[in-house]
Design a protein around this nucleic acid. Structure first.
Length: 468
RNA sequence: GACCCCUUCGUCUAGUGGCCUAGGACAUCGCCCUUUCACGGCGAAAACACGGGUUCGAGUCCCGUAGGGGUCGCCA
């Protein structure tokens, strides 16, 4: 059995969007599962729209997701000579021909075909005409002489057997008038030359698979095995647009999603293995297979992505989270996080991470550590600190000042004893403390907060509220 | 318009003719835990698009209808 070789072949006209990321992921997973190779090919033959920035964004996106490719990426444009050579070969064998039809003529053909209810496309008018009849000075394109009878069958690993009547498929352009190869030619030649065995891509390419199969056959090459995966839709079932999630993966990074969570979410979107939801990458590699891919389009759901993200955050080590969240905190506070602050962050991370779905949430949760006195109160916190609560804080302050060992255990014992002595529920004491210490009504356990803030800062924040 | 694909809870899915009184996850709602919010635990509501067949028996097979999507470039 030959080694599996898959590829991801983005065109660098924009960032790596979520659909592309999933396609890349499936190709990567399949190659890893089969012990094969995963190659990267940049389809940059559209010179007008391809940009180095886009290439950069795509490579960065793949790396962030941990989808490392084997070998050097192939740049399609660099292989144009080879593509042209193949077109010449076809020309020589009569399997392709020069076509001098003008854009206006083509437009006319489409209009006519539509009116007559026929498949739209080129009518083959130069298929059998002698080039000597060419209009003087006109630059021709090279078209593929595609079979006009019979059918082309794709044995798709996801969609099953899909049949196309050959007469539905018109003669596609192989070489443009300027001599550069088109996508249709380039993919076939490159997939062949790169030894690609499995083509896993969006099902918007399903019809292309038929045309490409014809080309493979004309060239005497064996077509790869195809697997056309359904597209991802927006939450409304419509095509994914920017407002729903057709964003570059770097946008997800900025929103505070972990690459492992996005990966897991993407795996589950359109692929299933029984009831498995949480699939760490090694597990995914072990279980991934083409026949687990669903046929229906899936809708993108941020809520579920966030749920996965929360899971991965809770299961990350505290240190890893400190490292990951610091850039978000620095963004918020507008300065670098100091070393002592990192240490303090690490001591409450175990509590913070239970409360976060994203790194952005985590940064919000950690915000109280970075406040400058006197701290500002949210409306809810301010409302909670009425006269009675402030008076209570005064009495608690005395207790806390008397404490000798500023530890979670000692603080807890002290405050609990105080509440009991006052005949109060712990919450009645804890909430005003939380408001005074964090400026909010939501935070990790109050003893964790006291402990991480330290004696001096805690006492100061509390007395700030008593004095006002 | 032509061709192609798709259709199980709101969403992602399990289900490959009897195990389905249709399972899980997210979201929603309720309860428990509890110093807030989370986390965690328990529970509820919630789906086989529709119509015909085939079969002793259909979510599972076939046909049709409806709805959704994709493709029809000298873009990829």
């Amino acid at each position: 059995m030959a080694t599996v070789v898959t590829r991801f072949a983005p065109s660098p006209t924009g960032f790596l969007h979520i659909g592309g990321a999933r396609t890349a992921l499936f190709n990567w997973l399949y190659a890893r599962h089969m012990g094969g190779r995963f190659l990267l090919r940049i389809e940059d033959t559209d010179r007008a729209r391809s940009t180095p920035e886009a290439i950069d964004a795509i490579l960065k996106g793949l790396r962030w997701l941990g989808l490392h490719w084997d070998e050097e990426p192939v740049y399609q444009f660099a292989r144009r000579e080879r593509h042209a050579e193949v077109a010449q070969k076809l020309l020589g064998e009569g399997k392709a021909y020069y076509c001098y039809a003008t854009p206006e003529e083509l437009e006319e053909m489409r209009a006519k075909a539509r009116a007559e209810g026929r498949p739209m496309g080129y009518d083959g008018r130069w298929r059998d005409r002698d080039p000597s009849e060419a209009p003087p000075g006109a630059k021709p394109v090279v078209r593929f002489r595609s079979p006009d009878e019979g059918e082309t069958i794709i044995d798709d690993q996801v969609q099953g057997k899909v049949r196309f009547a050959n007469k539905q498929l018109d003669d596609m352009v192989l070489l443009r008038a300027d001599g550069t190869p088109t996508y249709m030619l380039s993919v076939v030649v490159d997939d062949h030359d790169m030894g690609i065995t499995h083509v896993i891509r969006g099902d918007d390419h399903l019809t292309n698979a038929a045309r490409q199969t014809q080309l493979f056959e004309a060239l005497g090459w064996k077509p790869p095995i195809f697997a056309h995966i359904p597209l991802i839709h927006g939450p409304d079932g419509k095509k994914l647009s920017k407002r729903h999630g057709a964003l570059g993966v770097e946008a997800y990074e900025k929103m505070g999603y972990l690459p492992e969570a996005l990966r897991n979410y993407l795996i589950r979107l359109g692929w299933g293995y029984g009831d498995h939801e949480i699939l760490p990458i090694e597990e995914a590699i072990r279980l991934f297979d083409l026949d687990g891919i669903g046929k229906g389009a899936a809708r993108f759901d941020f809520a579920k992505l966030s749920a996965f993200n929360g899971h991965y955050i809770r299961n990350s080590t505290d240190q890893h989270l400190v490292d990951s969240v610091c850039p978000f905190i620095e963004q918020k506070i507008g300065r670098a996080v100091r070393n002592d602050e990192r240490h303090r962050l690490a001591t409450v991370m175990h509590a913070l991470k239970l409360r976060a779905k994203t790194l952005l949430d985590l940064a919000d949760g950690a915000a109280f550590l970075f406040l400058e006195r006197p701290i500002e109160l949210t409306d809810k916190a301010a409302k909670l600190l009425d006269g009675e609560a402030r008076a209570l804080l005064g009495r608690v302050l005395k207790e806390l000042e008397a404490i000798s060992e500023w530890s979670v255990e000692a603080l807890e014992a002290k405050v609990k004893a105080f509440a009991e002595a006052e005949g109060l529920k712990l919450g009645t004491v804890a909430q005003p403390l939380r408001a005074a210490l964090t400026g909010t009504t939501v935070s990790p356990g109050i003893f964790d907060v006291l402990a991480v803030l330290g004696r001096e800062e805690s006492l100061a924040r509390i007395s700030d509220q008593i004095e006002t």
